[in-house]
């Protein structure tokens, strides 16, 4: 099982892995962009119940949500050039990254479509009615009233989606892409310090996920600033052994009163 564990390797691997962080982030950003565009295109026919297109959207969703991402990667990489060859497109020289971003993008698109549809449908129908009643066009009602509220609803789901995508990109190494996980494999094989490499790798993913989560949480709070702020949820649920029940009750009494 390789060379004996040495913590020093973890630190020396960190900068080496970070050299390929750019590739990982490029895959994430490219797929996210593709995914959001695809998501909108797929969500629209479902929201507006357009025949035929709606069925196609359904098929798209079933495929990308119902098969493993690894298999989708292989299908795109090996299948797409074969499929397009008879149509006169030569993809045999296209960079691997192209297939990777396309596969991850369309995969993300399936989840983005459901996110978009669910968030838009979660906006109260009365909001649209009020917009229409005051004479807004359907475009204005959507862009000024529905969309801002739907965005706030979508952020937590979006946050999950981005983090899942970040972690999924680690499978791109199977097609020989030198992103972080690919680099880690190489380093491991070269030095035989597998455990240290993967600790370093896990650390990097963790830090990025954590940062993304915090940033998106801040965005959510900003978008939801119109919601009534809830009372500070700092009250502990532990059984308090000190003091009498009367004291506890008095405490609660002091805390209530006033509005939400």
């Amino acid at each position: 099982m390789g060379a004996p564990f040495e913590i020093g390797y973890v630190f020396s691997f960190l900068p080496k892995l970070l050299e390929t962080l750019g590739v990982t982030l490029l895959i994430v950003a490219g797929s996210l962009l593709t995914g959001i565009v695809a998501g909108f295109l797929v969500a629209l026919p479902r929201m507006y119940k357009i025949p035929v297109l709606r069925t196609l959207s359904g098929l798209y969703l079933s495929f990308f949500r119902g098969t493993p991402i690894l298999i989708q990667l292989f299908l795109f990489y090996y299948g797409l050039p074969e499929l397009l060859k008879p149509l006169g497109f030569d993809l045999s020289r296209a960079p691997v990254l192209f297939f990777v971003i396309l596969a991850y993008g369309l995969h993300t698109g399936a989840y983005a479509a459901e996110m978009i549809r669910a968030s838009v449908e979660a906006v109260d129908r009365g909001q649209v009615e009020a917009a229409y009643a005051s004479g807004m066009t359907s475009y204005r009602a959507f862009s000024r009233i529905v969309l801002p509220q739907a965005l706030a609803i979508a952020v937590p789901v979006f946050s999950n989606l981005v983090i899942a995508l970040l972690k999924d990109t680690s499978l791109a190494f199977t097609l020989g892409v030198m992103e972080m996980t690919g680099k880690a494999q190489t380093l491991g094989t070269l030095t035989q310090h597998f455990f240290e490499t993967y600790i370093a790798l896990a650390l990097i993913y963790l830090v990025i996920s954590f940062t993304l989560e915090k940033v998106l949480l801040a965005a959510e709070q900003r978008l939801k600033r119109h919601e009534a702020r809830e009372e500070k949820a700092g009250r502990s649920f532990k059984l308090r052994r000190k003091g009498s029940y009367r004291a506890v009750l008095a405490d609660i009494d002091a805390g209530k009163g006033g509005r939400l």
Binding site: G126, E129, A133
Partner: peptide
């Protein structure tokens, strides 16, 4: 409206 339907984000 019965349910007021004020724009919630405004």
């Amino acid at each position: 409206f019965q349910q007021y339907n004020l724009f919630r984000h405004k």
